[in-house]
């Protein structure tokens, strides 16, 4: 574990101590929040879980609620080439501004971030994606972009399998079968990099007079920025 990861873990533990101190009822929401809620009756209907089931389509990061069914890399390749490649690229490299499936390998991604060079435009399943079941959720819910939610469960499992194979996710070989048991076991390469925010991270002071010495270094937009700029909306004289 690198030094930076250590320090983030330490921060997490410190935050845990704060949470336990501040919340008398840790690991449960504060029921007092509902005390002022009005008591109402005769509005709405009860509903059965069976009736909700067609809408209960969220697959949690740990695989909870993943559906029955399965998919293969080879079946996924066929669907991907027909329905996905035009936006995400034949090799998952992205196209026409749509997201990449394959980004920089996670080591390179982390090194770029540390070096202060662009890492975010090289996001892909092999760096910024924490859990395979979430990928299945995204694909089954939202893809293909122009006809969202139209893949069958097996098709969605297959596309999930293929794009992970494309991104060289460890363990997802050409013969890998994706289902509700196998997906939660996949270790996504970027997963160890995730940390949880711990509140405000800057501490500016409200200085009012003589706040610094010297000259402000002022950077303007270059005229040569070309198509990156849209320029002014308008510059009208004030009346």
């Amino acid at each position: 574990m690198s030094k930076s990861k250590m320090s983030n873990w330490s921060l997490g533990l410190a935050a845990a101590a704060v949470a336990l101190t501040l919340s008398a009822n840790a690991f449960a929401f504060d029921a007092a929040a509902l005390k002022s809620a009005p008591k109402v009756q005769g509005v709405g209907m009860n509903i059965t879980d069976a009736a909700i089931k067609p809408w209960d389509i969220s697959y949690f990061y740990d695989g909870t609620n993943l559906p029955d069914g399965k998919g293969t890399v080879s079946a996924g390749e066929k669907i991907y080439q027909e329905q996905c490649a035009m936006c995400h690229g034949d090799f998952g490299e992205g196209a026409h501004g749509y997201p990449k499936m394959v980004g920089d390998p996670v080591d390179q991604f982390e090194a770029s971030a540390k070096a202060g060079v662009d890492a975010v435009s090289n996001r892909g399943l092999n760096n910024t994606w924490g859990n395979a079941p979430t990928l299945m959720d995204m694909i089954h819910r939202h893809m293909p972009f122009y006809a969202p939610g139209t893949l069958t469960t097996d098709e969605a499992y297959s596309v999930t399998c293929y794009v992970m194979n494309l991104a060289s996710i460890p363990g997802v070989g050409d013969d890998f079968v994706c289902d509700k048991t196998s997906l939660p076991k996949i270790k996504m390469p970027g997963e160890p990099l995730y940390v949880t925010n711990s509140g405000p991270d800057t501490a500016n002071q409200r200085c009012m007079k003589d706040c610094y010495k010297g000259t402000p270094f002022v950077v303007e937009k270059a005229a040569s920025i070309g198509n990156v700029s849209v320029g002014k909306v308008k510059a009208k004289d004030t009346q």
Binding site: N8, G116, T128, G130, L193, T196
Partner: peptide, 15 residues
């Protein structure tokens, strides 16, 4: 996990 995250200067991804 992919969109609303911050890639920090220490290489970590903040959620």
């Amino acid at each position: 996990t992919r969109h609303y995250i911050e890639v920090l200067p220490n290489g970590m991804i903040r959620q």
